[in-house]
Structure formats: structure tokens, C-alpha cells
Nucleic acid binder design. Sequence first.
RNA 1: GGCCGGAUGGCGAAAUAGGCAGACGCACAGGACUUAAAAUCCUGGGACCGUAACAGGUCGUGCGGGUUCGAUUCCCGCUCCGGCUACCA
Length: 888
Amino acid sequence: MPRYNPKTIEPKWQAYWETHQTFVTPNTPPADSKGKMYVLDMFPYPSGSGLHVGHPEGYTATDIVCRYARMQGKHVLHPMGWDAFGLPAEQHAINTGTHPRVTTYQNIDTFRRQLKMLGFSYDWSRELSTTDPDYFRWTQWIFLKLYDTWYDPTTEWTGPDGIARTGRGRPIAELPIPEEVTAMGDDAVRRYQDDHRLAYQSSAPVNWCPELGTVLANEEVTADGKSDRGNFPVERRALRQWMLRITSYAERLIDELEPLDWPESVKALQRNWIGKSIGAELDFPLVGANHDFPEFMSHRQETGYPHTPSLDVIRVYTTRPDTLFGATYMVIAPEHPLVDKLTTIEQKTQVESYRQQASLKTDLDRTDLAKTKTGVFTGSYATNPVNGNQIPVWVADYVLASYGTGAIMAVPGHDERDLEFAQTFDLPILPVVSPPDGADPIGFTGQGTAINSGQYDGLPTLDVKTQITAWLAENGLGKQAVNFRLRDWLFSRQRYWGEPFPLWHELDDDGKPTGLVRTVPLDQLPVVPPDMDDFKPKGTPDPPLSWAPDNWLYATADDGVKLKRETNSMPQWAGSCWYYLRFADNKNADFFIDPDLEKYWLPVDLYIGGAEHAVLHLLYARFWHKVLFDLGYLSSAEPFHKLVNQGMILGENNEKMSKSRGNVINPDDVVNQYGADALRLYEMFMGPLEATKPWQMTGVEGVSRFLARAWRMITDETADDVTLNPAIDDVPMTADQSRLLHKTIKAVTDDIEKLSLNTAISRMMEFTNEFAGQTPRPKAAMDAFVRLLAPYAPHLAEELWQTLGHAESLAHAPWPKYDPSELIETELEIPVQINGKLKAKIKVAAGASQEEMEAAAKADPQIVAQLEGKSVVKSVVVVGKMVNFVVK
RNA sequence: GGCCGGAUGGCGAAAUAGGCAGACGCACAGGACUUAAAAUCCUGGGACCGUAACAGGUCGUGCGGGUUCGAUUCCCGCUCCGGCUACCA
């Protein structure tokens, strides 16, 4: 009578786990614990549309690992939370008038219900949301720690992880202040400190969309410079912003990536993003400054290369100092501070209008390769220090102000971009590297032999590089230099629904900001966003908080100084930078994480999530982690030991799932029709976790049939209640049954360890295919099988486990062990090949020797017939594997 | 343009310290059960040639080479597809 019915089984066991607190993990491990295991999912943004099928993919994989680990006696931490600040909730609020807090917590309720419906073994007592004041209180506190830190690149030290490093984040109080600064008074000292903090203010160009009245992130701007939402024009504007000095950690973010158990592709992505390059920095003296070229050279020989460039030079960065002789012109970025000084009266109009145009372009506009290069001549010249040639200085937006020194020496002979520019504006092109194959040197960007390079002619590129760099250094003209593509992190947003900065700006008597800042003390955190009805952007770049009620916005300090709150808010990344720490101690009211709990639970042992976070989230979180590590709050320098990226699930038509394509699969519908166990099992059975793979509803039906077969193997469908199938008996296993069981245990265990979950499921299918038809079925085999199935289809497994007579949940039942001696086959089937092609199969005893195998192969009638009249040149026999005869 | 990943039956896939290609599942076909269907169970299956049916043969893991007794697996050179990134000097 009772068929397999997930609709009764699944709610029953979900309720059981909840009332028995089966998956609540105490912070103290049991005495017999086999060690801790922290398994983390990338927590979701609780969007209004609910869970999509991509979420349960990674979540099921981690759940399987956790359930398996618990059955092995490990102490498992498996939490879930919500990355719930962000623009969609705010936009929704503007459109509907509902406060974002309301919609956010509604969405969270939906997500929680859906996740519980899928039977994940989260410890819900550790749930958190980045929008909880108890949580963002500590996000603000960590920001203040960043604010209170400077990076000392020279300190040598050994961390609690036992690794020696150079460079460390240190409290700002330890920053040495130069005497001349101290002499200028307290405010000067404060400003000097502000210039060294890891969190600092700067005027940065941002994507400003007047129609939407908001600043947009680069990824919210389309390729043609329009807003992603609404398709309105976007322009560049310089606004005061908060920045985080992630660049000072660039070197360590590369170096400390190396030992991590991460996909090589993700490591490569991060390395490329940081983009370290080694080259040289050098000065080109301007023609017409208060000296002539020989005078400049002798002056530099005496005084050496200055730390900051003097105003009579253009400083450039190049990765190809060996091509210095080929530098036939220079280019400075439109935002370069020397532009005005260099522009002659005749060129002024042109340069001004060019700058104006460039300032309106978005980054994407400027980097669009399809467009031809643009630029204008400044009217000025500089001297190439290596040969004394006077070369023109141009302004062009293909040179970026934010990379290197914002100026380049252009070598059109050996750089594609410079070549294109030189051809457009008819500038001289001088080849200085001859390719090894004797091809045309112009446009050659590889390594070769120097030409047209004076004394360096004939030398290989690498030698010229070191020799010219050395020459520059000796003459005080330049030095070897390292550059990073990574920029400091623009950390402020003009939004309401985010963490407010815990900062005050000091105001002068006229109510204008002085540029000096005060922090909100810890005991006054969190700074909660004020209650406001109207946070709709007003068409100016002022953040919504700037029209917050005065009692929130203004205050007077104890010393009488007038204060105004910082009205920017933090980006969504802030909350996700440290949530993995808080899970280990989410209720701590006194500190962001207890040091002992940090030491016990961290780092995360396994972190699974989508590849879209391969760079930003993972880089930002590593950065914060390292700062907290340097300050002594954490015991490990890296947050995530092992990382796995789940692949994307495509629609049934093999395209990315999207509403507009109409190919979205809703997990609720799948669970309704087939049950949570079937959805979980199918998502794991589709293929390798990392692979991109298309959905097939018939595939869900397939795994659902397997679950029903397992059900019938153990229960009696003809009975009125769920009872044990009468074919199951307490009998010993036959040799074949025992071998299959032990092979299945071994395969399923090995596969979980490798996260090869699709093949583990096929092994269990083979097991049921074999056992389901047998009578009697040994109860011990059924017992072991149910435990193997438990991580994948936990509801069904619990029900079957109970049917097999167990009173307790199997969540902590011991994982089955296999006996290697049970795996041994007595007789092997061996392929016999002739010239590498399969011709016959023979049976030999398991321990057969090489000679025995060859003899058996030669005795096979098929082989005898095939070898008739031919001579065997060679016999290849691999013991226990195969036989091959090479014949003529 | 750069970096990364991929290409195996009608479909999702499996197998690589080099050793029976296609496990497992889907779809399909035939059969059993049924008045019938659903469900379930059994059987079949890479392609081509061949046979009444067996037998047997040839080809076959994107393409072209190479190494090897033997290559889906290793090496060299391509093609196509997907993802990310994009003037970083």
C-alpha cells in the first residue's frame, strides 16, 4: 500500500531534525571527536524571486560532505546566512514605498523556508544577516580597524602561523612621523596619518548617471556607456570617496595564494587581476626647463634619482627599458597633473577640449579597442635621456592616469598601441629590436636582438633590459620598479540600504568640512541607518543619507567641535568580507569573534560557490582577513583552505537560464512533483560539480525511479503501513553479495572524498539493481546501503533506517567501512589482443602468473585460429590486466 | 587580443601512473503483467558491412601528425564551442 511518497516522508524528518536539534553544533567538540570540519556555502543574496536551481547545486554538495563527515565522527560547522544589503531591495522600496528592511526580511523568510524544504543540515542557530545591527556593528568595527591601520612594507615578522613575512599592517599610532610634520602641529600630524591609513578619502572619478540620480559600479554600466538599468547616459565625475588601500597587500595576496587548495584557474584569475609586472621607472627631462640637457644629466649624477619626480621631468613606467632608444614620443594621460604646464599657448584650445571630452567618457568608452586612438600634441618636448633626442609630448586617453605614473614613453616600433597611435598621427617609428627569425622588426613585441641602440646593439633583449636599467640607476635617471594592475578599492556608495560609515566629519565655524575625521567609539556602534521615508536619489550625487534628519546627521563633540556624519555607505562586499568568521561565534556581544573559537574553527576547510566570485569577493575577503591577521586578531593568514567552484546549470535548451528565455526551472515545482531528495540527487547526478550542464526534467524522473526502487528494496509496498520487506532477513551475505557491498562502500567513500558525487550515485544504483531482485536480502547489506545513501537522500534514508529497526536518527550513525580482503576476485576476465586489437577474452585465476596468463591466452581457440600461419614477434603480458601478441 | 575551461552514442555522462571505450541514467525499441493504461519487471542497443539467424569483419572518443606492442589518456600543430577579462605601457 505505501508507495514511496516524499510528500509524507520529507516534512516528517525535517520536523524531527528541528525538534531534536540534530544539526545544532555546540562550540565544544564531544570527547571522541575526530576533529573539526568547517564547510561553507557562499551565502545568497535573498532576492525577491526566491531560490533558483543553481543554489541547491553547491548547497547539496556541501551538505553531502557535512553529513558524511558527521557520520565519520567529525565535529562539523555548517552554517547559512544572508548577504542582504544591496541595490535591488532599495530600488524595490523606491518603486513600492515599502521599506527595504521589510522586503529584505520577507525575502529571507522565503529563502529560509526553501532551504529547509530541501533538507540541508545547517545549524540554523548560527544564522545571520549582514543587515542585522548585531552583525553590521562589527562590520563597522572592522572598518574602523582598517581606518586605524597603516601598512609598513619593511617590518620583518613571524605570525602565529609560524611563517616569516616582510611587511605588516600596524596600528596608526606606530606610524613614524617626520620631524618637519610634527613641527607643523597636531592637525598636520593627523593629516599625515590620514595619508597612510588603509581606509582613506580621495577624489575618484565615478560613473554618475544623472537620470537615475545615482553612482553606478563599473559592472552596472553597459559596453556603450549606458546604465544597465534604464539605458540612460552615464558620465564620469570626480567625487570624494572612501578608498581601501588593498594595493599595499598586493604582493602578499599573490604570494600567499600559492599553497592554497584552490582551482589553478581561480588562482590564475586572481594573479592576473593583481597583475604584477616588473620593469623600470625613469625620468625624461622637459625641454625648455631652467637647464639644458647636459646640465640636467650631471645634476642627476650628483644628486641621484629623487623619490618624487621634480616638476621639470616626466616620469614614466615601462616593462621594456630595453626599447628606450626606440622611444620617439611620449604620452601623458588627460588627467596628468603636468598637462596644463606642458600645454603651449597655441595648443591650449585643442588640449582643453580634448580633456573635456575625455572626462565625459566612461572607462569602457575609453578602453573600447574598436575605436581608433585619439590624442593631441601639447606643444612641448622632452629629451630621451639615452640619446639626447628631443621628442614630442602628447596627451591621449589610451594612457590611463591610474596605472604606473600616468605617463609613458611611446615605442611605436615594438608596442601595438603606440604603433597604431604613431601611424594615426604620423609620428616617427624606430625599430630597436630585431626578431630572432629575421622578420620585420616593426610591430615585433617579443624578445630579440638590439639594433639602433648604440653600444647595446647586438645584445639579447634580456641583457639590454638589465644593462639599461643599471645605467639609469647609476646616472640617477631611474630604477627598477614593480607595478600592479590592482587599484585601491573604491569602498563608498551613495545608497541608503548599506552599512553607514562609523565616522564624523569635523566642521569649521562656517559649517564646512575641514577634511579631518573622527571615529564613532565602539560602545556607540552600530551606527544604524536613520529612519527615512524618502531615500529616492534627487538627481545630484549627494547620498540619500545627506538629507537624513538633523538629529542623526549633526552633533557636537565634547570639545565643542561641530560634527557631521559621513553620508556615504559601504558597498555590498563589506558584509561578505567576514561573515565566515562570525558564524563561528555569531552571538558574541563583546567581540566580533572569540579568539579560541577562531583558532578552533578557522580556516574554512571547504568553501563551495560560483565562479563569478573568483576574483572580487574572494580577494576582498582575503584582504580583510590579512589585515585582521596582522593586527593579531586571527591565527591564520588565509580564510579558505579549499575552494571549489560549482558549474552553471543551463536550461533544457542548453542556454543560460533567464526569465526572458523562458527556460527557468523553479526548485519549488521540482520538489512538489518529485521531492527534495530527488532534486538533490538529480543535481548531483547531472555530471561533475564543476561542469556547466543542461537541465533535463526526465533526468529527475530517472533518479526519482531509483529512490523508489531503493524504497521497494527495503519496505513492503503491499503492507498497510511502512514495514520491512519480508525478503529482508538476518542471513549472512553470499560471497558475491559481500564483494558487491564492499566494492560499493569503497567506491562511494572514495568518490565523496574526490567530490565525484555523480559516480558515487551510479555505484549506489548498481547496488540496488543487483540486490533489489534477490531473496533473501541480508539485513546487514541493507543497513550499510542506507547509510551510504543518507548524505544524498537524507529523508528517504532516515525513513528506511527507521524501517530497518533503528530508533535514532542516522545523522551520526557510523559510516560503513569496507574490508579490502572482501574485494578480491577469485577469477579474472582478461582481454587478449593481437596487435593491440581485442580478439578474445579469457578467464584466469586471480593470482595467475605471467607465464600462466600467456599460456591460457595461447590456448584460447579464437587466438589459436587468429595466430594460424603467423609468427608472434613479441608477447606483452601485464599480470592481472591483459595480454597482447605482436604478430607479423 | 589575453587568460581559463571544454569537445566521447540520439541526450546527460563514465573510464586516464597509457591496457576490454561508452559504467550509470535518460530517451528509444521489443516483451511480460493488465480488459486497457499508468506503474513495475525482463531484454536490446556506437556506426557500417555481413548473416535466415549465429559467426565474422571494418571503422569509431573534434581535425592533422608523432611516441608506443598498445593512445580518449602522453607530445607537437590546428579547428570549433563556452566562461572570464579587456589599451595596465
